[in-house]
Design a protein around this nucleic acid. Sequence first.
DNA 1: ATATTTTAATAGGGATCACTATTTTAATGG
DNA 2: CCATTAAAATAGTGATCCCTATTAAAATAT
Lengths: 199, 199
Amino acid sequence: MLDRDVGLDIAARLFWERGYEGTSTADLTKAMGINPPTLYSTFGSKEELYRQALDFSIARENSRRSEILQSNLPVYEALSRYLYDIADGDTQPDKPRGCLVSTAVLQHAEENASVARMTAALREASMQVLKSRFDRAITEGELPAETDTDTLARFYGAIIQGMSAQACDGACNALLKRLIDIALTAWPGMRQTSTGNSD
Amino acid sequence: MLDRDVGLDIAARLFWERGYEGTSTADLTKAMGINPPTLYSTFGSKEELYRQALDFSIARENSRRSEILQSNLPVYEALSRYLYDIADGDTQPDKPRGCLVSTAVLQHAEENASVARMTAALREASMQVLKSRFDRAITEGELPAETDTDTLARFYGAIIQGMSAQACDGACNALLKRLIDIALTAWPGMRQTSTGNSD
DNA sequence: ATATTTTAATAGGGATCACTATTTTAATGG
DNA sequence: CCATTAAAATAGTGATCCCTATTAAAATAT
């Protein structure tokens, strides 16, 4: 039998490219070079394998991204680098496009509702991480105390999800970063409010 | 046999809720109250039915949304109302969550690549509509001539896709609109540029 | 070397996939 | 009323779905 982590890496990549519903257990066993019974004795089920593959992939990326976000950099700078890192992840040369989690299992068959709840929870958790960083920025005087950090986190979460969708559709790295640059102009206090019309 | 438009409406709703890969022809025939041969004689194939159902649904929404966007309102106001209308569409009480098109067929099995190309083309087209409206705003003096309207359109496209994803995950209408309000602060000339740090 | 346990491979189970050939029913025409 | 055409239903195509019972091979133990 193959190494467990190698198997999870192969599975994560297949799920990343084809989604949960678009990846069959036959695809998985073939790519791993194992027989079906080995998959089930090692990982339990397709859903359990998906769960483990997501955890495995997230754990690998989380250390770097968490370091970026929780560093001593000003929050605006940390957020910028965090988003840029995600844009890079969405457009790696020899990897599937987009993000494994951001746009996974949105529309789905009812039988896969529990899988959808899992990916939704992962997305919610990553937005809560953003919100926590923004809350810290308030205590450190980098953001006004009245800032709606929850909505602000969901706004950048939407950007992350939109980038993943557009990367799946073929968007290049530079485009995603231009898009981030616009999103960053929505940062509170970045600019002084005016009427909204330029004429 | 049932009315063709009624069938397309039923199909669109199923595809909306479950996605292309998550909806079976058995689901479709059962929901329409027809037999499999009727589905194939009327619509050709599952993929062709999907295509027709998307066209049907889009045509119905497009008249209203196009009217909002192409009205004589200031472009900022038109964009605001356009995005709010989409947020309403993402969170209708007795309809599936999110947008039928915005987050459809992103990750997919290779056998469904042509379906993914179709939905990607629809998303691209809707962003080009936004870009055209922004280009018009330049000619009418509402936006600086040097505005990168393409990226600006893709930025709001990302917001639309992010809203759809979050609506699928359960986000309420008010949250999506707060999110839009933040996205609108990124509108060019909305505020005067400053350093980026509030301290 | 034989017996026992562990591991891997084959083979297949029951269900569902998208899709059709065939039969049955219904409608139309003389 | 019967013949012919058109519509709808049944039934079933081979393929694939996720998952497992069973068999074959390999490793360990006596």
